[in-house]
């Protein structure tokens, strides 16, 4: 429900860092670009509710298909370096992030997110560039928090305030939103909701077939190159397999060289020759370096928020002679 500013003057924009720090500071956009070491990272940005519409019964929230994701090259500075400018006090334990978006009513909680200090690492950056250009306005201009491997609810846009606290802050958008059941399967049923929940945080292993799309007509006996992307929370993709017999047998697809790093899309391709005419179902399944893999779509367990869907993707093509 945000009021999003429609104009931000980059000459006057700054990030304020306060709370449990030695010296509260304001860092201008110019200083961010000049006084800190620039770093780049290619990372997937994915909504926690990506593919929510695949859950039944329908959970509330945007009824996404599989398109609530993207992958970009982000350039910015390490959050760690920026925090060091203010100097963390010994009792610092949580970092709160707030952007320039405001709720419609002043009484409503703002979109404030928090990260436990123990989860801070070198790949978390404050980005001022996306794919070599200033961040597009609705992607969080002029700076956005980048938490590679975490779902996008953590990627605060138009980041303007960082507040360090000694205790876990009470925040609506941490304590009540973007959460899954705190049990092994991260699952529950509508009649038996899990008593405890936890933040969605790290992305689970997932893959999508980009080509062909369902309904595509392909020629019998002619090479068909299946292409798509796989990714996870940063452990890295170990393999992607393809099945054309409903998941009974799997063949390994060819992965790209992985040079974009473990947080990026790992593209895959697999060449097949459809032998018979009629409907051909193609499935893709990714496995990460931890051995975690994707369940069949019908085996994905439900949760009330419709988060973290990662069922095996399938497309149905029409093979014609």
């Amino acid at each position: 429900m945000p009021m999003i500013p429609t104009y931000i003057n980059p000459n006057y924009f700054s990030i304020k860092i306060d709370g449990e720090v030695e010296k509260p500071v304001k860092i201008s956009l110019d200083s961010l670009m000049r006084d800190f070491k620039p770093v780049e990272i290619t990372s997937v940005l994915q909504c926690g509710g990506n593919s929510r519409s695949a859950f039944h019964p329908t959970p509330g929230g945007i009824q996404w298909g599989p398109g609530a994701m993207g992958c970009a090259k982000w350039k910015g500075v390490r959050l760690k370096d920026v925090l060091a400018k203010a100097g963390l006090k010994k009792n610092a334990s949580w970092i709160k992030f707030h952007g320039l978006e405001k709720p419609v009513y002043t009484k409503t909680d703002g979109f404030v997110r928090a990260l436990e200090l123990s989860k801070l690492h070198d790949k978390i950056i404050i980005a001022y560039e996306m794919n070599g250009e200033a961040l597009p306005y609705l992607n969080g201009y002029p700076v956005r928090l980048i938490l590679p491997g975490f779902y996008s609810d953590s990627w605060v846009k138009m980041l303007s305030n960082i507040t360090v606290t000694s205790v876990k802050p009470k925040l609506h958008f941490m304590d009540h939103a973007y959460r899954v059941p705190d049990n092994d399967c991260e699952c529950e049923t509508p009649d038996n909701l899990a008593p405890k929940t936890k933040p969605i945080e790290e992305m689970n292993v997932n893959s999508l077939i980009g080509y062909p799309t369902s309904g595509t007509k392909v020629k019998q006996g002619t090479e068909l190159i299946v292409r798509g992307v796989a990714f996870d929370g940063g452990h890295g993709i170990a393999k992607v397999e393809i099945s054309t017999d409903g998941g009974s047998s799997w063949q390994e697809a060819v992965l790209d060289d992985g040079s974009q790093g473990p947080y990026a899309y790992r593209s895959f391709r697999y060449t097949l020759k459809p032998a018979r005419t009629g409907t051909l179902t193609i499935m893709a399944r990714a496995t990460n370096t931890k051995g975690e893999t994707q369940p069949f779509a019908q085996d994905v367990k439900w949760n009330r928020g419709g988060y973290k869907y990662n069922g095996i993707d399938e497309v149905n093509v029409e093979v014609v002679s």
Binding site: M1, T58, G60, G61
Partner: peptide
């Protein structure tokens, strides 16, 4: 619409009265 577009409502999908 005081706070959000009607799209947010449509996006919830068909739901029960209790929902």
């Amino acid at each position: 619409n005081m706070c959000h577009s009607w799209g947010y409502v449509l996006n919830q999908g068909p739901q029960s009265k209790a929902f």
